[in-house]
C-alpha cells in the first residue's frame, strides 16, 4: 500500500448494479483498492468479473440500466460524486482519462486526430489554438509516433491499430492526468506491437509519475507491467497484493487455479490443470462466489469471506486465509 500523501486514488465500497428481469444484479460488489503516484495497478479477471465496469464506474460512465449503487471514491484528496454527470465531465479527460480496447470507439472518424486532440485540451484549459496544436504534436512524439507533425493531420482510419492505440494514449495523457485507466488496451494487438505499447506506458509512468489502472485478462502482461495486482471474480476482488507475491504465492483458490491453468506453467505436462465449471449464476451468491468451483468449499463459505492479510500488503478473501490468520 502507499502512504497517504502519495495516494492518487482511493476506492471504498464501490458497488454497481444492473437492473434486469429478475431484480438488480451486482456486477461490482463492494470493491475497495487504491493506487499511488507512479504506480501501476493491474486489475485481472475473466469475462463477467466486473473488471471493466469497475473502470467505467470510476469514470462515471455507467449508463442505465446500470447505476453506481454506492461508492466512496477519492481522487487526490477530493471526493468524486460518480452520479453527478456535470461534475464528472470536468474530471474525465482531465484528472482521470481512460484508454479503451478498441480505439475506434473513442476516436471521431470524421475529425483529424490533431483536431480531436486540440478539442480535448481546450475543453479543460484556456490557451491559443496554435499552442494547443504544438502540445498535441509533442504528445504524439512522446508515444513514439514517427513524424508527428504530419500524422497530426491524419484521420483515424489512415492509421494502423497500433498507431491508433498510441494516439489514444497520447490523448489520454494530454492534460497531465493524475490517473489513467486502461481497459484491455493491447488485447487486439499483435505481440510485437503490444510490446511497443507497454514500453510507451512504462516510459510515461517513469516520466510523469502518473498512476495507472491496467485492466486485463492477461496475467503475463500484468506480471511484467504492474506493481500490484487485484484479482476479480464475479464482481468482487478476491485477492490483492504486490505482483510478485500474487504470482509466486497466490492465496485464493481462484488465483491459484487461474495461474495453474496457464500454458507457461505447464510445459511438457500431458493434461493442463483446469478450473472445473463456469462463472454462470455466481453473481447471485451472497457467500463466497467461487465456492461452487472450489475444491476447498465448505459450510462456512455460505458467508462472504472478509479480506484478510496473508503477508505484508497481500490480502485474500477466503476462509483459508481467515483460518491462517486466526492461527
Amino acid at each position: 500500500m502507499t502512504d497517504g500523501n502519495d495516494q492518487v486514488l482511493s476506492v471504498r465500497s464501490l458497488s454497481t448494479e444492473f437492473d434486469g428481469e429478475d431484480g438488480a444484479l451486482r456486477v461490482v460488489d463492494d470493491v475497495a483498492f487504491s493506487v499511488g503516484r507512479g504506480e501501476i495497478l493491474g486489475i485481472v479477471g475473466e469475462s463477467g468479473s466486473g473488471k471493466s465496469v469497475t473502470g467505467y464506474s470510476i469514470m462515471g460512465l455507467v449508463d442505465p440500466p446500470g447505476r453506481v449503487a454506492s461508492g466512496d471514491v477519492v481522487l487526490e484528496g477530493r471526493r468524486l460524486d460518480l452520479t453527478d454527470d456535470a461534475a464528472m465531465r470536468k474530471v474525465r479527460g482531465n484528472a482521470i482519462s481512460m484508454i479503451f480496447q478498441d480505439p475506434m470507439t473513442s476516436l471521431h472518424p470524421l475529425l483529424t486526430i490533431g483536431d480531436q486532440m486540440i478539442d480535448a485540451i481546450l475543453a479543460h484549459r484556456k490557451m491559443p489554438k496554435r499552442e494547443a496544436r504544438s502540445l498535441a504534436v509533442e504528445a504524439l512524439r512522446k508515444v513514439g509516433i514517427p513524424s508527428p507533425e504530419v500524422r497530426v493531420r491524419s484521420y483515424p482510419h489512415q492509421l494502423s491499430g497500433g498507431m491508433r492505440q498510441r494516439v489514444a494514449i497520447a490523448i489520454a495523457s494530454l492534460n497531465q492526468p493524475a490517473l489513467i485507466i486502461a481497459d484491455e488496451p493491447t488485447t487486439g494487438l499483435d505481440v510485437t506491437i503490444q510490446a511497443q505499447i507497454l514500453h510507451e506506458i512504462q516510459m510515461l509512468v517513469a516520466d510523469r509519475g502518473m498512476a495507472v489502472i491496467w485492466i486485463t485478462h492477461d496475467m503475463a502482461v500484468v506480471g511484467q507491467l504492474a506493481d500490484r495486482v487485484a484479482v476479480m471474480y464475479a464482481g468482487r476482488i478476491v485477492e490483492e497484493g504486490p505482483t510478485q507475491a500474487i504470482l509466486d504465492s497466490p492465496a485464493h483458490p481462484y488465483t491459484i487455479g487461474l495461474l495453474g491453468s496457464l500454458l507457461g506453467r505447464n510445459r511438457g505436462k500431458a493434461e493442463l490443470p483446469q478450473i472445473p465449471g463456469s462463472i454462470d449464476n455466481a453473481h447471485r451468491l451472497t457467500g463466497c462466489r467461487f465456492a461452487p468451483r472450489c475444491a476447498h468449499a465448505r459450510a462456512e463459505c455460505e458467508a462472504r469471506p472478509p479480506m484478510v492479510e496473508v503477508s505484508p500488503g497481500h490480502h485474500s478473501a477466503c476462509i483459508l486465509a481467515t483460518e491462517q490468520a486466526d492461527g
Binding site: Q194, M219, Q224, L225, Q244, L247
Partner: peptide
C-alpha cells in the same frame, strides 16, 4: 516474436520492442 511475448512470473521488466509496424 519470442522476446516480445510477455512471460509469466519473469518479474517486472522493461520492454525492448522491435521498431516499426507490420
Amino acid at each position: 516474436l519470442i522476446e516480445s511475448a510477455p512471460v509469466l512470473s519473469a518479474g517486472k521488466r522493461r520492454f525492448h520492442p522491435i521498431k516499426g509496424e507490420i
